[in-house]
Amino acid sequence: MIKFFRRIRQNLLVESNNSKYFKYAIGEIVLVVIGILIALQINNWNENRKSNQFQTKILKEIKTSIQLDLERNQSILEERILPKRKGIENLIKNMHSNEKAHDSIIRKNFNDASTGILFTYDKGAYESLKAIGLDKITNDSLRNRLIRFYENWLPRGKELIREYNETYSQRIKLREKVLELSYVNGKTWYVRARLNTKDLKSNKDLLKLLDIEGDIYWNNYRVIVPIIKEAKDIISLIDKTI
């Protein structure tokens, strides 16, 4: 192709036809520019295709992480946080009831009321995205939601739960007052700590402890429930984007 154009230029120069030569030169320049534009367009198309492929891949990984965390948090809510509230309510009823419930029921309520949680989350996929560039996510709303979720909601929620669990040092002292210890011989000797069910109505230490456990329940609930909702919303946004 280059030889073909060179031959045309040489023939025009030999003919000394300046008008035709200039027209040809302009045409050649136009063809070169068109070729460059086409090459740039193809390159941009390839880059966009690679970027879209990366966005789809990383969003699928983030979605998987969020789904696993969501399942864990829903399990924490249903199996630990809500039973904790129920245990507190039932134990208070036990304490104020004229008919005393069986010791095993009272202790079951106490164990539920004493339940704690460990809040964790996986941010590996998000950190991979952040290292390459958050601007790879073309959906502005989704990008901003991911940033808030991983940079604010999750770390703040984890810190709130940790602070509440560590702040109530009085909780440990009260538990020591309401529990009875006994040595039990199984395969080996061990210490069993159970709620002392005697004189429940007059056990002010137990009421103070339940008040603290109620605060812990409410803190855990107000952290987990919004995170569950936000996780579901983000998953829906990811599905719409990919």
Rank of each mutant, 00 (worst) to 15 (best):
M1P: 08
M1V: 11
I2W: 09
F4W: 14
F4A: 13
F5S: 10
F5P: 03
R9C: 04
L13T: 09
E15K: 14
E15A: 12
N17H: 02
S19K: 08
Y21C: 08
E28S: 01
V30D: 08
L31F: 09
L40E: 01
Q41A: 11
I42Y: 03
W45N: 05
R49D: 07
R49I: 05
R49W: 07
K50P: 03
S51W: 00
T56W: 02
I58W: 00
E61N: 15
I62M: 09
T64K: 14
T64V: 10
S65T: 10
Q67W: 12
L70C: 10
E71R: 15
R72W: 14
Q74I: 14
I76P: 01
L77T: 05
R80F: 13
G87N: 04
E89F: 11
K93D: 07
M95R: 06
M95H: 02
M95Y: 03
H96T: 14
H96A: 07
S97D: 08
A101L: 11
A101R: 08
K108P: 00
D112M: 11
T115A: 15
F119V: 02
F119P: 01
Y121W: 10
D122I: 09
D122R: 04
G124S: 13
G124T: 11
Y126T: 00
Y126N: 00
S128H: 09
S128M: 12
L129K: 04
K130N: 11
A131L: 08
G133C: 07
G133Q: 06
G133N: 06
I137D: 00
T138S: 10
S141P: 01
L142P: 00
L142N: 00
N144L: 15
N144K: 15
F149G: 01
E151D: 13
W153I: 14
L154Q: 07
L154N: 04
G157K: 08
E159Q: 15
L160K: 12
L160D: 09
K173V: 06
R175W: 08
R175F: 10
E176L: 06
V178H: 02
N185K: 13
K187M: 12
T188D: 15
L195Q: 01
N196W: 06
K201V: 14
K201D: 12
S202T: 15
L209Y: 10
D211V: 06
I212Y: 08
I216A: 06
N220A: 04
N220V: 02
L237I: 02
L237Q: 09
L237W: 03
I242G: 00
